[in-house]
Design a protein around this nucleic acid. Sequence first.
DNA 1: GAATGTATCAAGAAGATATCAAGATACGAC
DNA 2: GTCGTATCTTGATATCTTCTTGATACATTC
Lengths: 246, 246
Amino acid sequence: MDSTTDKGKVCVRILLVDDEAAILRFLKTVLDSEEFCVYKAENGRLAIAAAAAVRPDLILLDLGLPDMDGIEVIKRIREWSNVPIIVLSVREREEDKVTALDAGADDYLTKPFGVGELLARIRAALRHALQQAPAPVYKIDDLEVDLIRRRVTLAGVEIQLTPTEYDLLRLLVTNAGKVLTHRQILRQIWGAGYIEQPHVLRVNISNLRHKIEKDSSRPRYIVTEMGVGYRLKADFPENVGTKANG
Amino acid sequence: MDSTTDKGKVCVRILLVDDEAAILRFLKTVLDSEEFCVYKAENGRLAIAAAAAVRPDLILLDLGLPDMDGIEVIKRIREWSNVPIIVLSVREREEDKVTALDAGADDYLTKPFGVGELLARIRAALRHALQQAPAPVYKIDDLEVDLIRRRVTLAGVEIQLTPTEYDLLRLLVTNAGKVLTHRQILRQIWGAGYIEQPHVLRVNISNLRHKIEKDSSRPRYIVTEMGVGYRLKADFPENVGTKANG
DNA sequence: GAATGTATCAAGAAGATATCAAGATACGAC
DNA sequence: GTCGTATCTTGATATCTTCTTGATACATTC
């Protein structure tokens, strides 16, 4: 269920769109070895659906698709997304390149192309995307947690947290609204060996409260669920988690 | 600085870097007819100077320059600017393309190319540029870092930094506000082989602090993020990379 | 009011960071 | 080429933060 909580392990997702199985296989091998997460689509309809579902960081698109023209795919995706799209095509007429680029493609490679050049162009395209990365900020009343910048502010004032305290708060924040049992938290933060030692958790919750709660004896954010665990109050249950339904 | 919107007349500035007069003339004609404002440079030194002075919205760069290699020009400009750079070159070896793209070029066209394709790729590159507006000089409190002139001043007094110290500060400055992990910094400055040696980083941070901090034991600029890395304090509390526009 | 679970405080241990200084290396001047 | 300077690297040590643990006070439930 919580696939997103893998200790900050990030994987750049690439959506591969091509109808030739051989090319798909070949490219998947190449991209896998570069530690990309590869998703595949064999036609335009699936490509558009996958772009919406997977939310890839980059799309490699062949123009010759069985069900619809690649240009149309670009236009449809551009209606709602700025994900980098690199076109891979056998069409080498200048007119085709111009049409694809003006439809919203970011780059255009003519087959056959070198693997090295493809990877370099992927890196270049990803550079662009990184610069406009939106920072998901969790906000509950006066409390703001910026997971990318690793910063916590209370009414605009920055709060200094120790590494463990930050990990703990991050776990609570990414599960805002849900109750986390002692055992769940202990396993996630301290490891399976600490499941039977709730004391260390209580001490850290206490320290954390003293830093983010105005009156730590009457906590507004970190609520104790007697006999069960802890829960972070969620103000915007629908808005908070940027990951759509996990 | 002179903005792009002088008296309502919007002019996209393009810097043309090539040593062949014929090509310069030809491209200027093409670009003029598209209502671009064209600036020219005939060698690498002039190109870097013009990039700083003119602040073009896009650079078309030939790799074969008389005074220095085009790759070097890309790297030097990338130290302080994210302006889109499209390489135009006769070199069609894959290795050349990869080197240029990884040095920071946004696109690579092999001569001879079609004018239509060039214009389409210019339009695509300009689309990206709309979202990013980098700060050429970083300023916070008394500290000023001029990435163009490679100069650091503290309350107006120039500070002498070693090459490593400058690289380190530049990395922090271009990511002001964000936390950079030890590993990120080590990989960027010293290379992947040093990722497991945080000592060299600590020594250099210490030296840097002694030069730019008044009280190095209570740093105002370079903040330690315990257990994580370092962060340069940003004067904007909010997102730094979002379209500052002058 | 007793039993169970929870919160707080404080001190030693463990770990991470900062600093100093000496040897090694690279670079420019002569 | 040799010297002198600046820079980089490496090692040892000092300083500080954070973690862990134990004792004790508080709260809730029955």
